[in-house]
Write a protein that binds this DNA or RNA. Structure first.
Lengths: 201, 201
DNA sequence: GTGTTATACTTAACAGTGTTAAGTTAAATG
DNA sequence: CATTTAACTTAACACTGTTAAGTATAACAC
């Protein structure tokens, strides 16, 4: 019974191949500037083959995005294990969050800006990766409050403030790459540090 | 010599008509889903006529956004006249900024998220309205630093931190209307206050 | 008033897009 | 060996932004 399994393996491989090609093109040239034909030509298949593996172009981007969000979650959870001080963990997590957004701007914008626009009704879907990322942030903030490092404001608000800050700087850096920003890392650090300082007792 | 003036007036009128039609369609259906043909049909001209008034679709979007920014700038400058305390002015301006975004969410996204995506290379151009808005913010922050209320970090960075915060919370509130946010005004105030506190000495 | 020029707009077309229906080819099954 | 099934391709549709060429009308000079 090895034949069916080989076939399934090959299908999975091609799916992954499409996904990788799409990611590379999306990241380098931007979602709008990448056509299905371009992706197809990169993997040396006809354009219509893609539709045997993905519903449409949005679904393809969706899948690319889900992959990278899982990466973000991995990165963050790895980080958590190595750091004890909750403030330091929050700082590093914030930085990792922004850097992820800058590394995969298309994915970031799709998930946190574009998808909500077309998928109204739910903020972050139940059980979605996006929700898990916010859960992670909440846990961290919660620890800072518990240890009385942060002011005793409610956890939800505090988490949302933190999210606003990193979300804001991420999008500004993505959307206005030619604005005369302060040196990028300095800006990110200052945003995170300022917010943390402001949240302290 | 009234003929030339009448002609000029008519040209201006048609330009404005195109602009209004474009704004309405962009806001209601989203930039990508609006074609030049759709705009043209709305104003009952041929599609190519638009190109006599605007370089291309991006330029049209640009002009729509410029209008939006002028409105924002007006709102802000009205505010400035009434307040003396620079921190209070900054707080109120931040709030006004966010509220402007929430009142015209589609316009805000068009200007600060969608346009940069399609009109690359725009830092904030010399003399542009966007630059004036940031100048406004800079002046305010500068005063806070001069009066030694804020830490002596450079003005640019400080301004950018402030912008990140308000931009972030504005977009989150727009894009995830069904997320279990803290009460809206409380969240906005906390974001602004936290950032201001973090910037203080 | 007539001929010419400039202005404002339109028609037709190009090269590209996402997507689908129908067709092909080769492998697996009975 | 015949038939069915799966994987992939070809051709086409209805769109997109944009441009070059054409047209009709209004303004101007004489």
């Amino acid at each position: 019974m090895g034949i069916k399994e080989r076939k399934a393996r090959e299908k999975k491989q091609l799916r992954q191949q499409i996904l990788s090609a799409a990611r590379e093109l999306f990241v380098n040239e931007g979602y709008e500037n990448v056509s299905m034909r371009k992706i197809a030509s990169k993997i040396e298949y006809s354009p219509t083959t893609i539709y045997l593996y993905f519903k449409d172009k949005a679904d393809l981007l969706d899948s690319v995005c889900k992959e990278t969000l899982l990466n973000l979650l991995n990165t963050l959870e790895q980080l958590k294990r190595d750091i004890n001080d909750p403030v330091e963990a929050l700082r590093k997590s914030g930085k990792a969050y922004v850097e992820f957004g800058l590394e995969y701007p298309q994915d970031y914008k799709l998930t946190f800006v574009i998808r909500p626009q077309f998928q109204k009704g739910l903020g972050l879907q139940e059980g979605s990766v996006g929700e898990k990322v916010f859960d992670y942030l909440r846990a961290m903030v919660s620890e800072c409050i518990r240890q009385q490092i942060f002011r005793q404001v409610d956890v939800e608000t505090t988490g949302q403030v933190m999210w606003s800050a990193v979300h804001g700087v991420t999008l500004l850096l993505i959307d206005f790459p030619d604005f005369p920003w302060t040196e990028k890392d300095k800006l990110i650090d200052t945003v995170i540090n300022t917010t943390i300082e402001g949240l302290k007792a």
